[in-house]
Design a binder for these strands. Structure first.
Lengths: 216, 216
DNA sequence: TCTTGACGAGACTGACGGTCTCGTTAAAGT
DNA sequence: ACTTTAACGAGACCGTCAGTCTCGTCAAGA
C-alpha cells in the first residue's frame, strides 16, 4: 500500500535546454527528496495510536501530531486516513503462519481455532483490530482490504478441513464452507460484541461442536 | 425511547384542586400534546431513507427534511440519530414473533434459523440493516442499542435450546451460549461479508451441524 | 546561486451531529 | 374568551473532523 506517486524520470534527456516541456509526462526529478524517516515516523505513530486506541476513532491530526509532521505531508503520500492505518498495520503486523498439518483433523482444527482466539485476545492487536474494523465501516478502501484478508483466512482453514475430509475424518458431503464460517462467524461475533469469552475452553468446545464430541 | 425532559415542577402549591397528585414527580400534563402523525412521518422517512440508502450514510437533516419536520422535533423524542434509525427499523420491520415451541428441538431450531436467514434476505431490509450496522460503528449510542437488540435475540434462541435440553434432546452439559453464538455468528458473518448465501439449504445444514445429522 | 519540491505549521472549507432560539400553534384549565 | 403550557417548523449556531490550500523554510541537484 505504499502509494508512491509515479515520478520516475524516463526522460530522453533533452529536458532542460532542448525542446523543453514538449512531452509533459516525463521530466527528471529535481528538488528535495522524500525523507524516509518521515514515512517511518508516520507509520510508527499510526500504529501506536491504533494499538492504544481502545475502540476510539483516530483522527488524522492526532497521527500527524504524534509523528511531528504536518497534515499535508501525510496526504502527500497517502490518499486517505484509512490508507495510512492500513499501511501501518500491514507493514508491521504479524505474518500469517501456515496452518498445522499433524495428520489429525481434530488436533489441527483445535490448534487453528485456539490460535485465532488467542491472537485476538493478545495485546496489543485486539484494540487495533477493533478500531480498524470500525474505520472500515465508513472507508470503502479499508473494507475491501479487510474482505481480502478474511477471505485468505477462510481459504487457509478450508485447506485444513479439506485434508481432514480426504483422510476420511469428515463425511464426504459435509459442507466445509459452512464449517469455516461457523468458526470465523463465532469468532468475529464474539470479538466485536464482546459478550462472551474467546478463551481456550471456548475453542475446545467449538471444535467438539463442529466435529462431534471426541471419542477419546 | 421517549426521553421526556424532566421539568417536573414539584410544587406543593395546591395548584389543581381535587387532583390529589401529592407526589412530587407526577404533574398533570398541560399544553399541546405530542402529534402522533409527526412521529409516524419521521419513522416513515427514516425507514424509507434507510431502505433506499445502499450503504450510504444517512444524515439527520435528510430525515428531518424528508419528514417535513424540524430537527429539534426529532431530538425531542429520540436521543440520537441512531435511535431514530433503529426505532424505524424495529418498529415496522419484523415483529419479534415468539419462538416456536413444537415439542421438537430440531423443528424449532430449523424454523428460527430459516426465519432469521429469510428475513435478512427479504428486500428491502437487507440494505437497511447493513446501513444500520455501519452507522453503529461510529455511533456509540446506536452500538449500545444494537447490542441490546442482539442480546434479546440471543435470549430468545437460548430459550428454545433450553426447552429442548430439558426434554433431553440435547446433552445436559452442552454449551447453549456457544450454540446460540454459532447461529448468530454465522448469520452476521455471512450477512455483512456477503461471500456465501444465507438460504434455506444453509439453514438446514447449519441445524444439522449443530444437532448432529437427523436420524430421520 | 538558483530552481525545485518536501517539509512543518496552521488557516481554511465543507459535512455532519447535536443544541439553541424564535415565532407559531394546539391542547387543556379557568 | 383568556391564559398557560409545551409541541411544532425553521434555521442559526457550535464543535469536530477529513481533506485542501498557503506560506515560509529547508535540502538536493544543476
Amino acid at each position: 500500500m505504499g502509494e508512491d506517486r509515479a515520478m520516475e524520470a524516463n526522460d530522453a534527456e533533452d529536458s532542460a535546454p532542448g525542446t523543453g516541456p514538449g512531452d509533459a509526462t516525463a521530466r527528471p526529478h529535481t528538488g528535495r527528496r522524500r525523507n524516509e524517516a518521515v514515512r517511518q515516523a508516520i507509520l510508527d505513530a499510526a500504529l501506536r495510536l491504533l494499538v492504544e486506541s481502545e475502540g476510539a476513532p483516530i483522527t488524522v491530526e492526532a497521527v500527524a501530531r504524534a509523528a511531528g509532521v504536518g497534515k499535508q505531508t501525510l496526504y502527500r503520500w497517502w490518499p486517505s486516513k484509512g490508507a495510512v492505518l492500513l499501511d501501518a498495520l500491514t507493514d508491521r503486523a504479524g505474518q500469517d503462519v501456515p496452518p498445522p498439518d499433524t495428520g489429525s483433523l481434530r488436533d489441527d482444527l483445535r490448534t487453528v481455532v485456539a490460535a485465532t482466539f488467542d491472537a485476538a485476545r493478545r495485546a496489543p492487536w485486539a484494540p487495533a483490530l477493533r478500531t480498524l474494523v470500525r474505520e472500515a465501516a465508513t472507508d470503502p478502501h479499508l473494507a475491501e482490504l479487510l474482505r481480502t484478508y478474511t477471505g485468505a483466512r477462510r481459504a487457509l482453514l478450508h485447506e485444513v478441513l479439506d485434508r481432514g475430509r480426504a483422510r476420511g475424518e469428515l463425511p464426504a458431503d459435509r459442507d466445509l464452507d459452512l464449517l469455516v464460517d461457523q468458526v470465523y462467524g463465532l469468532f468475529w461475533y464474539r470479538f466485536l460484541l464482546g459478550h462472551a469469552p474467546l478463551d481456550r475452553a471456548a475453542a475446545e468446545r467449538l471444535t467438539d461442536s463442529l466435529l462431534g464430541p471426541g471419542t477419546a
